[in-house]
Amino acid sequence: MSTVIEVSALSKSFGAKQALSGVNFKIEQGSTVALVGPNGAGKTTLFSIICGYLKPDMGQVDILGHSPRSAALFSKLSALPQDAQLDPKFSVAKQLSFYAQLQGMDKKSALADTQRVLELVDLSHVAQSKTSELSHGMRKRVCIAQALLGNPEIVLLDEATAGLDPKNAKAIRNLIASLKGHITFILSSHDLSELERLCDTVLYLEQGQLSSHQSDLHQTQQGSYITLQMLNLNDQMQAQIAQLQGVTNVKQTQSDELVIEYTKHAEPLDLSLLTLIHKNQWTYKQIVNGRTLENQLFID
Rank of each mutant, 00 (worst) to 15 (best):
E28V: 10
L228C: 08
S224M: 05
S212D: 06
S224H: 06
Q221E: 10
K89F: 04
P88M: 02
S193V: 02
V250P: 00
E194T: 04
E6N: 11
L96A: 08
T45V: 14
G163K: 04
G40R: 08
I50G: 10
L46D: 00
V61Q: 10
P38Q: 00
G137N: 07
R69D: 11
L217I: 10
A84K: 03
Q238K: 03
M58T: 09
I172H: 03
K12T: 05
Q95G: 03
L118D: 04
Y204S: 12
D200R: 04
L118F: 11
K26Q: 11
S135N: 06
I5C: 11
S272M: 11
P38N: 00
K251G: 00
L64G: 01
G181I: 00
T131K: 07
V33D: 14
A239C: 11
L35W: 08
T184A: 05
E261D: 12
L244S: 12
R141K: 15
V4S: 11
L203A: 12
H66Q: 14
S13V: 01
L205C: 12
D87V: 13
A84E: 02
V259W: 05
V247K: 01
Q95S: 09
K43A: 02
Q95D: 04
L64M: 12
K55A: 15
D113M: 01
L276G: 14
S97V: 09
I299K: 01
K107N: 12
L258M: 06
D191V: 04
H278Q: 15
G208N: 12
H190I: 01
D235M: 08
L276K: 07
Q222S: 13
L120M: 15
Q146T: 12
L269C: 10
L157A: 12
I50L: 15
L80E: 13
S8M: 02
I176M: 00
A239Q: 15
Q221M: 06
E294K: 06
L118I: 15
L156M: 07
F14A: 13
G150I: 11
V36S: 05
V142K: 00
S97D: 02
G37S: 09
P152G: 03
N24I: 03
A266Q: 15
V121F: 10
D300N: 15
N295C: 01
K94P: 00
Y99H: 15
